[in-house]
Amino acid sequence: MKLKAEKQHEGSIPTASMADIAFLLIIFFMLTITFEVDKTQVILPKTTIRVEIPKKAAYVSLTEGGQIKVSNGEELSASVPGPEDVFSFAAGVVGSNPGKEFVLKADSNSSYRDVDAIIDALKRAKVRIIYLLSNQQTVDDVG
């Protein structure tokens, strides 16, 4: 009996849904992205205890050289000349939202004198809670 030769099928990978998957990934990235209000480059201190900082918290950043920037958590941070300006900024923020949390993003090598002046300004402005921004301490860091 003569067998009919099987028809040769061309092999191909179905790629029609690839664009859908890629766009789903893009939508995921776009929804989960959080915009940084403060882009100051600092080396953060390392701590073992790290609690989640509330979103929209106000930021005060301090570089090793003593440069201070502030942000109310919604707008990009702006430079201020000194701690007295931090006080007037914080007083304004607390005036409109008494429970507002503040984040202190200070360089680990910045002088405590500068940090002290900022904490004092925040205390005088009646800020209730501050978060000292930090990186995770690992076993290697402890040595």
Partner: peptide, 26 residues
């Protein structure tokens, strides 16, 4: 679409969102 994904992945910077909380006395 993949070019856009690569762009997002390259430009994303991971930020610290945790820290040591410290309640200030009145």
């Amino acid at each position: 679409a993949f070019l856009l994904i690569i762009y997002f992945m390259v430009t994303t910077t991971f930020t610290a969102t945790r820290g040591l909380d410290f309640a200030l006395p009145e």
